[in-house]
Design a protein around this nucleic acid. Structure first.
Lengths: 161, 161
DNA sequence: TACGGGTTGGCAGATTATGCCATCAAGTGG
DNA sequence: CCACTTGATGGCATAATCTGCCAACCCGTA
C-alpha cells in the first residue's frame, strides 16, 4: 500500500491507463509493445498503478440484454427525514438488491438518490419497487424514468495527453 | 462468430460470469479452481462466452477522483424538435466529449437524455456545458444534478443461480 | 569527472495458456 | 442389452507469458 503521491504520471503511464480501460485483459507483452517500452518496465508501471489505487480493479462487461434484463430504469428516491441513520440504512438495503446497478446520492430539491436498475420487464420493475424499495424505512417518494436506449455506457475516464 | 443461441447457461457458465465480473483479470487456472473444473474446459467455456457476445469485453476501473475529476454530475437534456436527425447529431456530438461517461435516452415529459459527466470542478462543468453541450443544435433545456456521493457504481449484472 | 537515484532492458525460472487426444456420460436406435 | 453418436471433460506437451533479478543507462548534482 502506498499513500497517494502528488501523482506524477508520464505519458507511458497515461498510455497504459488508456489502453487497459479499453482492453482490460491485454497481455503485458502487447501492452508493452503498444506503449513503446519493453515488458519489464511496462509491468512494473502497471503494478505500481494498481498498488497506488489508481487502478481499482478489472471487470468483464456482460451483455445484460442477453441475460434477459431487457429493462433499465433510473429511479429517483426522496427520503422523509434526512438523518445519517436513515441514509445508512437505505444504502445498506439497496446494496443488497442485485438489480440495483448503481446508487448515487445527488442534489435536488425533491430527490436524494438516483438508482440505476436492471430488470427483466415491467413485472420485475414493479416487484422490485413495491416489494423491496418502497418498503425501506424513510423512503417517501419514488419516481422513475425508463431508459429507451443506452446510447453509450461504461466509457473510460479520460486520461489527457 | 456464432448466432446467439437460445442461451443455455449451466451453473459453470454462470459462475464464470460472476467471477470475471468481479475479477476481470483472474487467470484461467484460478478461475478453473474456483468453479470446480479443470483448466481446459474452463478456458473453452470462457472463450465460448466471449465468442457468443455475452462477454462484451474487459475494462480496468480507474479512480476518477485520483485523476482529478472531483465532480460528477447528471445532466438532463431536452430537445426542441424530436427528429431522428437531431437525435443522431446530438448523440454524435456528445460522444465526442470525453467528459461524458454515459448517455442514456430516457422517458420523461421534459427530458430526452441523461448524461453522466465527470469534470475537475465547477469551472470545468460550466465550460463543458456552455461551450460544448448547450450549443448543440436542438438542445432546448439543460438541468443538472450533482453527485454528492457515489454510494456504489459499476456493479456486475446479476447472474442468477 | 564522479556520484546517486531512478528507470530501462535482458535473461532465467516459474507460471499460465493453448491445442490435441483419449476418456467418459447421456441419449438414440438396433 | 448392446453398439453408436454427440458433447463435454481431464491430462498432457508445447508455446506463450509473467516475474524477479541484475547490469547498464540516463540525468541532475557536487
Amino acid at each position: 500500500m502506498k499513500v497517494p503521491q502528488p501523482l506524477a504520471l508520464d505519458r507511458y503511464d497515461r498510455r497504459i491507463l488508456e489502453l487497459i480501460q479499453q482492453e482490460g485483459r491485454i497481455s503485458n507483452q502487447e501492452l508493452a509493445e503498444r506503449i513503446g517500452l519493453s515488458p519489464s518496465p511496462c509491468l512494473r508501471r502497471l503494478r505500481a498503478l494498481e498498488e497506488s489505487g489508481l487502478i481499482l480493479g478489472y471487470r468483464a462487461l456482460v451483455d445484460a440484454r442477453q441475460l434477459g434484463y431487457r429493462l433499465m430504469a433510473l429511479v429517483h428516491i426522496s427520503m422523509d427525514r434526512h438523518t445519517p441513520e436513515r441514509f445508512a440504512n437505505f444504502e445498506r438495503q439497496v446494496a443488497a438488491l442485485p438489480q440495483v446497478q448503481e446508487c448515487l446520492m445527488i442534489t435536488g430539491q425533491e430527490v436524494d438518490y438516483q438508482l440505476k436498475i436492471r430488470v427483466e420487464d415491467m413485472d420485475g420493475y414493479q416487484q422490485l419497487l413495491l416489494q423491496h424499495i418502497t418498503p425501506i424505512e424513510g423512503v417517501s417518494g419514488v419516481h422513475s424514468n425508463f431508459v429507451l436506449r443506452p446510447v453509450f455506457e461504461n466509457r473510460g475516464v479520460p486520461v489527457e495527453l
